[in-house]
């Protein structure tokens, strides 16, 4: 069941809105070069694009790292499957982001940032069912924050390619969030909004 969900989500990655993003030019970088009047040339970024790319890359890196950890250490099969999905989906997203960041000359982090390192350390101190729940609850927070960041980039970025990637990823990330919430419900009895 998780498998089909994952396949659907990945299929979702392929499609995306074709129409160009059209943001508020008041927030553009002052040095933006235009391809034609009103249209920034490809890979022209503003501060939102650059900060987004770095934060999303840091999050994505941690998703894969923690996913690999949970894939091996989790107790419940569903949690291991979820972790596997994180490794795959975020691995793919990280690669796409890296390509666009390189084109736009945005340096991306290569190792875990202190926030995620602290999370990793905390998770390492748990095992069994306690690990499962701690991992899934941290995943809920991570995906909540990522969804906010993605919407922020869609809204306030200016590099159309990065914005389209963010738009592509949003439903996937919300799908992960929903799945993590469902797992949290199964593991702990926490309430869920919509039954699958």
């Amino acid at each position: 069941m998780i498998r089909t969900a994952a396949i659907l989500l990945v299929a979702g990655l392929a499609t995306g809105p074709a129409a160009a993003q059209m943001g508020n030019p008041a927030g553009m970088g002052a040095d933006t070069r235009m391809a034609e009047p009103g249209k920034p040339a490809p890979h022209q970024t503003n501060n939102t694009d650059r900060l987004f790319a770095q934060l999303a890359a840091a999050g994505g890196l941690a998703e894969v790292d923690l996913g690999e950890m949970a894939r091996d250490r989790a107790d419940a099969q569903e949690v291991r499957d979820f972790a596997e999905m994180m490794v795959r989906d975020h691995g793919d997203a990280n690669a796409r982001l890296a390509e666009l960041a390189e084109a736009a000359h945005i340096p991306l982090p290569q190792e875990l940032d202190p926030d995620h390192q602290a999370l990793r350390d905390r998770l390492e101190g748990t095992e069994g069912a306690a690990f499962d729940l701690a991992y899934i609850r941290a995943q809920i927070v991570e995906h909540q924050k990522t969804a906010q960041l993605l919407a922020w980039e869609v809204n306030a970025g200016q590099d159309g390619d990065i914005q389209r990637l963010a738009a592509d990823l949003l439903p996937v990330v919300l799908g992960h969030l929903e799945r993590a919430q469902a797992l949290n419900g199964e593991l702990s009895g926490a309430g869920v909004r919509i039954l699958p």
Partner: peptide, 19 residues
Amino acid sequence: PTMPLSRVRAIDEAQKPEV
């Protein structure tokens, strides 16, 4: 805003038909 109003306006006006 990070851009002067006159440039914002020029970009907005250029985008308007497509919007």
